[in-house]
Computed example of a mutant assay.
Amino acid sequence: MGVSGAGKSTLAVMLADRLDVPFIEADDYHSDEARDLMSRGIGLNDEHRTPWLDRVGAAARESADAADGIVIACSALRRIYRDRLRRYLPATKFVFLNGAPDLIAERLKGRQNHFVGQSLLESQLNVLEPLEPDEPGVTLDLSETLDALVDEALRKLGVAPNAAPATPTEVRIPR
């Protein structure tokens, strides 16, 4: 979880690979309307996010039922969004990628072929609610290397990776 540009998708793919579990990219479940709004620099409201989170949660539960876990890359910026995802997968643990806004903005400047750009960073930071002490998960400093972040996430979550990395399975729904 975290704001756009924090590295959620990249980290999630690496975690899924190390754990040999399916990977879901939550961005694939946005409606065309939501994608259009974000591509024009307009942030989403709860009316847009609720059905999106339900689609992500349903797909994740279906995939998790067929596997020994799942990794999802999802902003889940507010606690109510994380609680909504936990309705589908109650044992969900979150990895919050936290970092300096300047670092994230720099990453977003170089982003290509994505509907969320730097113009939404401030609104996402304003909405962001970090993990609360009673929420299962960990907070990581995104300024670390990706390999270090993967190792730290696995260690802090108490999850043992499989011996041999596998190719991640990506679950997508048609638009």
Rank of each mutant, 00 (worst) to 15 (best):
R84I: 02
I42F: 15
D54T: 01
E62H: 09
L11H: 12
L85T: 10
A67D: 13
Q112N: 08
L108F: 11
Y29N: 10
A64K: 09
A60M: 05
T50D: 13
D102R: 05
A73T: 04
V127K: 07
V71P: 02
A166D: 08
N126V: 06
G69C: 08
G69K: 11
P22Y: 04
Y81L: 03
A153Y: 04
R18W: 05
N162Y: 11
V116Q: 06
A59G: 12
R40V: 01
G137H: 01
F23W: 15
T169V: 14
R107S: 03
D151P: 02
L125F: 08
E62Y: 04
D102P: 01
S31G: 04
E47K: 07
S4T: 14
D151G: 00
R55Q: 06
T169E: 14
V71N: 10
M14K: 14
F115P: 02
E106R: 09
D36F: 10
R175K: 14
G110D: 10
K156S: 10
G137M: 00
G43M: 09
R18A: 14
L146I: 13
R82G: 10
I173V: 09
V95P: 01
K8F: 00
A59C: 06
P101N: 05
I72C: 09
S119T: 07
L37T: 03
N113H: 13
R18H: 05
G7K: 04
R175N: 10
R18T: 07
E144M: 10
V56F: 04
A34I: 06
L11Q: 14
Q124Y: 03
E33Q: 14
K8I: 00
N98I: 12
F94R: 06
S119Q: 14
V138H: 06
P165H: 06
A67S: 15
Y29R: 13
T169R: 15
I173S: 15
D20F: 00
R107K: 03
H48S: 11
V71C: 09
M38I: 06
R55E: 05
H114N: 08
L128H: 03
R155F: 13
V159R: 12
A163I: 07
D141H: 05
A16S: 12
E47H: 08
R78M: 13
R111S: 11
K8M: 00
L142H: 01
F23Y: 15
R40S: 10
L142M: 11
G41W: 05
V13G: 10
G43V: 09
L37Y: 02
E33R: 12
R18C: 08
L15E: 03
D141A: 04
L157V: 05
S4C: 15
L146P: 02
D102S: 11
I72T: 02
E135H: 07
L146H: 09
I24H: 08
E47W: 00
T10I: 09
Y81N: 06
R155E: 14
L140K: 04
G158A: 08
I24W: 03
G43H: 13
G99F: 14
D65T: 15
R111I: 04
I173C: 10
E152R: 15
D68F: 01
Q112G: 09
P168H: 01
S31A: 11
M38D: 08
G99R: 05
D27P: 10
E122K: 13
R61H: 13
A105I: 00
D46F: 01
A100P: 08
W52P: 04
R172H: 14
L121M: 07
K8W: 00
